[in-house]
Write a protein that binds this DNA or RNA. Structure first.
Lengths: 222, 222
DNA sequence: TCAAAAATAGGGGTTTCCCCTAGCGCAGTT
DNA sequence: AACTGCGCTAGGGGAAACCCCTATTTTTGA
């Protein structure tokens, strides 16, 4: 609280949440090289992230949305709810507007792909810290418009996928069956079936196999 | 040329190929901290990797198999062909035995997941440099057995698969269901089911979904 | 605050999966 | 010529998944 106008005296504290140690280390090294940043904490899970936030307050959190199979979006929501002033930069390996849209809707201030060069990462961090919304250059395909404009128009090609649906899409892509997903999430098979049906509806896929195909090809670029 | 028997005087030269700059930087920082390693080159694509190899010869290459949408496996093949003595460590974000198997078949000496901690990364690098094959702990589920098992016919696209089975595998990969395949080939659903069962048996896949995944990823590199 | 959307889950019929068995034909072996 | 193995064909039957319903509770958004 009350840490304004010290921005060029005190370093900006950054928290990074990613379940890939290499990415965490790389990001830490890189950001700590900058004089104005101090990446004081790393976390590999949502729990660790929340603990780190209560331990010492950060200005910016960089969150991998694919964290542990899709729970990164939940974490973003939770963080934004508990710390409304916290800037959040969503990090993802996917070049897919679907995820960017979800991330921003969940409360992120920016969406950054891991494919981006380090200079763009720096740009994104500064952009978000300045209070702006950052979107990758490759991403100029009308996402901001759709977000700003209330889309009561159902004619949009990509409908809003909920966090839960995203999580289940991820699990499908990894190879889990309906029953296994139900067991993993401690839910009824019927619930998972309903989520799958909603996903098919929203993604405009006809058969269950098309859903599996979509999940594989969009979550596991091979 | 002629840089042998200097291994404990001169640092081991390592090339890392990954299209995620953060991962490259992180890996570089981490490995350069070790006294015996020198990560002299980074590459973000197959072309860059081959150029780097012809510029200065390396002892180990760490290759992301998801490079630019799957061309990492091709790169491993090419590297192993041009530089048979080169040790290759495949890197992936996927916890999927299918990728590990394909990586090793392509010529990699090890398979490392990005989820792994840095101490395991170091372990993997040393293991591979020592001439061993490294597999992530979560992964010894019959992969080694399948690789060591004598492959009957290396001429066929996939060992031991009949033409009819291959045809059906292809149709599965394209997205056809059991009923559609039966109609297309004017056969009983039961026949197609039997073929699918045989495919699962021969490919040592447990569930029907694994078969679909295999078909998609093996026959449709998209 | 109030309506919409999301998350949960059951009913019931259809389809697919999966483990059997089994006949037919072809090729190589003895 | 008979034996043997195997690919291709296909059915029975039970389990599982899929699909179209409805319905309740919780969450979200305006």
């Amino acid at each position: 609280m009350s840490v304004n106008k010290l921005s060029h005296q005190q370093k900006t504290r950054i928290l990074i949440v990613d379940d890939h140690p290499i990415v965490r280390e790389g990001m830490a090294q890189f950001l700590n090289l900058q004089e104005t940043f101090h990446l004081c904490c790393e976390a590999s899970s949502a729990e660790e992230a929340l603990n780190a936030m209560s331990a010492c307050s950060h200005t910016l959190a960089i969150v991998d949305i694919s964290l542990n199979g899709g729970s990164g979006l939940d974490l973003i929501k939770t963080l934004k709810h508990r710390y409304p002033g916290l800037k959040i930069l969503a990090l993802s390996m996917h070049d897919e507007s679907l995820f960017a849209e979800r991330a921003l809707r969940a409360g992120a201030n920016g969406y950054l792909m891991k494919q981006e060069g380090t200079q763009n990462i720096l740009l994104a961090v500064n952009h978000v810290l300045a209070g702006n919304i950052y979107l990758s250059a490759a991403m100029h395909s009308g996402i901001a418009q759709r977000l700003m404009a209330p889309q009561r128009d159902s004619a949009s090609p990509i409908a809003g996928i909920s966090a839960r649906e995203f999580e289940i899409l991820h699990l499908i892509g990894i190879g889990f069956g309906t029953r296994q997903i139900a067991e993993k999430l401690n839910r009824s098979i019927k619930t998972i079936e309903a989520h799958r049906a909603n996903l098919k509806e929203k993604l405009q896929l006809k058969t269950s196999q098309d859903l599996v195909r979509f999940a594989i090809q969009y979550l596991e670029p091979d």
